[in-house]
Design a protein around this nucleic acid. Sequence first.
DNA 1: CGAAAGGCTCTTTTT
DNA 2: GAGCCTTTCG
Length: 730
Amino acid sequence: MNILANLNPAQREAAEAISGPVLILAGPGSGKTRVITHRVAYLIKTCGVSPRSIMAVTFTNKAAREMEERLINLVSGSVQDLTLGTFHAICVRILRTSGTVANIDPQFVIYDREDQISVVKRSIQEADFDPKQYAPGAIIAAISSAKSRMLSPVEFVKTERNYFDEVVSRVYENYQRILEESNALDFDDLLMKTVLLFRDYPDILARYQSRYVHLMVDEFQDTNLVQYELIKQIGGKYRNICVVGDPDQSIYSWRFADVRNILNFEKDYPDVRVVLLEENYRSTKTILETASCIISANQQRKPVNLWTQNDEGTSTVVVETYTEQEEAQFVVSEIERLVEQGEHTLGEYAVMYRTNAQSRVLEEAFVRYGMPYKLVAGTRFYERREVKDIIAYLRLIQNPHDSVSLMRVINVPQRGIGQQTQLKLAAWAKSMGVSQFEALTRMNGESIDNLKSPFNSHISRVLKVFSELMEELISRSKELKLTELFDLVVERSGYKEYILNEVSGDGQERWENILELRSVAQKDYGDLSPQECLAAFLEEVTLVSDVDGLDESFSAVTLITLHQAKGLEFPVVFIAGMEDGLLPHFRTFDDPMQMEEERRLCYVGVTRAKQHVYLVRAFRRSLMGRSQVSEPSRFLNDIPKHLISTGDWKDGSENAVFPSIQTWNKPAATSTPTAVVSEYQAGDHVYHAQFGQGVVVSCHPVKNDAEIVIAFNGAVKKLLLSFANLEKTD
DNA sequence: CGAAAGGCTCTTTTT
DNA sequence: GAGCCTTTCG
C-alpha cells in the first residue's frame, strides 16, 4: 500500500522531499498536519528510516499526542523511539541526560511564570530598586528578550541603551543567580542552555547530530531565534530539515517568535526546496474569501493564492448587541437555535475571543442556559493556589535547593514561620553561601565560618520541625510510589486538614482539585524509578499547555482564546468582541507591526471555521470596571458587503433599537422560592437532561435563585437552579 | 505571628 | 472586579 496515495500533488511533493532542507508554506486548512504525519510515516515505512533517527517538533503537547496516534495507525507499529514533542519538552530531555558536563544538575526544576514573578520581585529588592516602580511583567519580558538573543547578564550589560536597561541588567543578574542557587531553569533557559551546551561541547552535539538524520518543525513561523539555532545545530550534519509554517499565522512575536526565521531559512539553506500548499480543504468559499480580505490589508506580507473546491457556503454573519451580556446570550441562543434545527452537535461549535477576561461573561450565559461547554484553561488548573502548593512540596522533595518552592510552603499551613523569620533565614543562608534548605539543616549542627543561627530557641524549634518533615519526605520519596508519596505529603504536611478547614468555605472544592492533581500522578509512568517518576510528573505539570487539556471525549461548546485556537478547526466559529480596542487590542494602536499581528490573529480565528462564521460585537462593554462604548473592529471594514449578512433579528439601521433580551432568551427566569433551595443538599443524586447523572456538591442561595454545584461524570458544573431543570433520583 | 480589612493597580495573547 | 499588598489590631 502506498502511504502517500491520498495526498494531492503538492502535498505529496512535500512528503516525498526527504533529503535536504525543505520549506513548506502551508495556508490554513491545506492539510499541513496530514503532510507532516504522512511524511514521517513515509520515512519509516517506505524508506526504512528508524523512528529513532527522526525528531518532530510540534507547538503543543496535544499536537504531539495526536500526531503519535495517527502515526501508529499509519505505520501500524510502534513509534516509541520517535522524538516527538515541543521544543521545551525535547530540551528538558536533552539537558537531563546530557547536561551534567555543563554543570546542569539533572534534578533541576522548571520555573513557570508565577515562580518567575516571585524571583524577579526578590531580585528587584536585592538590587535596591523600588518594587512598586517596576512591573515584574515588564522585567520578565526584558529578561526573556535577552535570553531569546542568548545574552547572559554580563553580555546584556553591553547592549544597554537606557536607564530601564540598566535596571533590567542589574535585576537580571540577581534573577539568574537566584535561579542557579535554586537549581532551577525558566522556560527560556531550557532552550538557551541546550544551545549553549551544544555550542560548548561539540562532542555531545555530534552525538545528537548523528542520531537525528531527519528533523521536522511545525508552526515554524512561531519559533524564536534560539529555537532556530537549535535546529541548525542538531540538523548540522545531515541537513535533512523540514520546516512547516505560514507567515500569515504568526501570532507570537510578543513571545519573541520571529517570522524572519522563514526568510533566514531560505538564506541559510540556499538549496532549500520550497513547497506551497494552497488548496484549502477546510472552509467554504465565503469563509476563505472573508479571511483573505482581512489578511490582505497587511502591508508586510507576500500575496498568496488560497483556493478551495468547497461550496460557497453561507454568508459571514455580523451581529451587534448592546452589552457583552447580550452578546453572550446571542451566542448561546443562536447555538441552541442551530442545534435544534439539527445543525451540528455542540462539540462542533467554538466561541473565540481575544482576552481571557471575556470568557467569564460567556461562561455565565452557558451556565444559565444549562448548555454544556468546555473552557480551555479557565482559571488554569495548574495555577490554582492549592495545586501549586502541593506541587511546591513535591518540587522541594525533588530539589531541596528550590528557594521559590521553599518560601511558598514553609508556612503553609501556618507553622509560625512568618515573614521576619523567612527574611532572616534568607539572609543567614546567603551569608553562609548555601541554599535556604541547607541552612535549615544546619540549625542545630555546626555552622559555616562561625556564622551562628540568628534564631531564638522557640523559632529554632519550629524551623527544625519543618526541616525534619522535609527530610522525612525526601528519604521516603526514594522508595514510595508516586501516589503514595503524594498522599504522604498531603497528610504529613498538614495540608489536607488545613485546606478542608478553610474559613472561606471553598475548602471542599480546593480539596477536590488536589484529588484531581493526584489522578494525574496516578497515571502510568512506565517502569521508572520513584525519583524518575517524580521528575516526569513535575515536568508534565509544568510544561502542559492549555489546549493540552482540551477534552474531546464529550460533546460541548468550546470556549477558547484566539491564540489557543491556532491549529484547531470547528464547523461553526463565533468570534466575540469584534471591537476596536479588543480586536485589535488597544495596546497595539500605536505600533503598526503589532497591529498587523492583530489582523493575523483575526485571520487565524476566521480560518478555523469549516461551515459558518459569526463575528459578534457589543456596543457597550465594561472593561476594568468601567462601562465603555466601542467602535466596531476596523477589520470588519475590510470584508466586502456581499459576503456579510447581519441576521434577521436586527432591523439593520444604524440606530436600531435593540431587541429586549426576552426576544432571544428562553422563558424568563421564574424565581425559585428560597424554600426550594433546601430541597437539594450535598450528596443528593440528580439527573440533568444534558449532563446526565450527577451528585450535588453544594447548593446555596443567590438573589432569587440558587447556585448549585454538581459533579457529573467527569466534570463539575455550576448551574443556576431555576434553569438546571433537575430531577432528583436515588 | 496571624487574621481581617481596606486600598491599590491592573488585564493581551503563553511554552 | 480580582488579586495583591499594606495596615491594624489582638
